[in-house]
Structures are given as C-alpha cells and as structure tokens.
Amino acid sequence: MKNVLLICQKELRSYFASPIAYAVMAIFGLIFGWVFYNASRDFVRYTLLQAQGMGQGGPMSVNDQIIRPLLGFAGTIALFMVPMITMRLFAEEKRTGTIELLLTSPVKDIEIILGKWLGALLLYVCVLLMSMLNIALLVLWGKPDLRPVLVGYLGLLLQGGCLLAIGALISTMTRNQIIAGIATFFISLLLWLLSWFTAFDSSVTATVVNYMSIVTHFENFGKGVLDSKDVVFYLSMMFLSLFLTSRSLESLRWRA
C-alpha cells in the first residue's frame, strides 16, 4: 500500500510539473462553465416567462433542467479527456527507460499499476472539482436536491475510473504516447457509441452490446438513481482492465 501511494504521488507530481494537468483542467473548466452558463441562463429566462404566465409545461426543477444534462455532458467530455490523462502513464516510461527503475525495484507489478491508475484518477477528480465550482453556485442560489448530485458525481467517478483503467492498459502496449492517446480515444468513443447503434433494436445481441456501452450505465446515475447493476458493471470493467494491464506489463518482461 505504501508503494502504491508512493507511485501515485510521483504520478501526480509529474502531471502537475507538466502542462497536462493544467491544460486538461482549464479546457474542462472552460467548456463546462460555458455550458453551465447557457443552461442556467435558459433556465432563468424560462422561469421568468412561466412566472408571467406565458410558458407552458410542468414545474421547473434545477435538478432536472440543469444538473442532469450538465453531468451527462461532463461524462461525454470525460471521453475526450481520459486519453490525454492516460496516454503517458506507461508509454513514456517505456520510451525513456524509467520503466526499468520501477520493474527492478522491490515493488509488485500490481502496486505500480494501482499507483499509476490512482494518480490518474486523482487528476480526474481535480478536473471534476472544476465543475463543482459551478454546481456550488447552484447550491447557493438554486436549492437543488443534493442526493442526485452526489450520485451523479459517483457515476462520473466510476465511469472515469473505468476509462482510465482502459487507457492505462492501452498505454502499456506502446512506447508512443500519441498512439496510446489516439487508441484510447477511439476505444472510449466506441464504448460510447455502442449505445447509439442499438438504440432502436431489442434483439439479444443488441441488448448485450448495449450493456457493454459505458454511457448506458451512466444514465441512471445522472437521474440520481443508484443501481447496483451499474456499479457492478463499472467495478468489473475496472477490475478487468487493471487485470489485463498487469498481464500486459508481465508480457513486457518476456518481450522487452
């Protein structure tokens, strides 16, 4: 455990010593802030119209009209951010040869993997914190229901952990960061698009494929519904990816 934290700390330091961490946080903060601004502006306008008796429709809710779409949107941006975070994890160490230091130190492979994954996850949490600034404004003035917000963030965390584990796996397979990044991006995109291909299909294959989509499982979290089925999906995906990462790292020793 000590080793995991040690490597995690080192990863975080490298992220914050390079522009990656700041770039990812700034881009996410800007995009999320802009979408948040638009959503809140529309919400306020619509509420005013309704108050003047001119709008129709049901009661307005900060949770349904602002927070839910925003968290869903954050989940989508995560698909684009995760490759930027994970591409260097192993690829860079393989290229510069520092992987030899890690693999010849008295540390287990799994400790290296968990440390790196945890470091990436913490950076991802920092990125999510940027969006919490905006949500905090809503809490101050909009009095939303907090439970769905927390469940939504838990969902983002699980989804992120899952994608980061996949990214880590891909990063062990090449010594080229760019290739690792692009491959991770397309695989994340594929996992996301799976739900599109099968949206109007109800055959068994479609159900299975749909189940594999990483976004399908986020929908419930977005609504504030904590379903053990989705949690299990994310946890098992994480476990599988990290396990494959350890296999891939092991095979590196045989090939290197």
């Binding site: 040690l6 080192k10 330091r13 010593a17 510069t96 230091l101 890690l102 130190s105 008295p106 540390v107």
Partner: peptide, 23 residues
C-alpha cells in the same frame, strides 16, 4: 541500466528520495 532511468521533471534530491522510498 544503460540509459539512466531518470525523470527529467524531478529535482535530483527528489528523484533520489523517490528511488530510495521505492526500494
């Protein structure tokens, strides 16, 4: 190793601390 396994973004003492703790 043939190419010293160094992290360019670290300071010397910081790197040695990391390597030492790792060992």
């Amino acid at each position: 190793p043939e190419t010293p396994p160094l992290y360019p973004e670290m300071e010397v003492s910081e790197y040695l601390r990391f390597a030492g703790r790792l060992k």
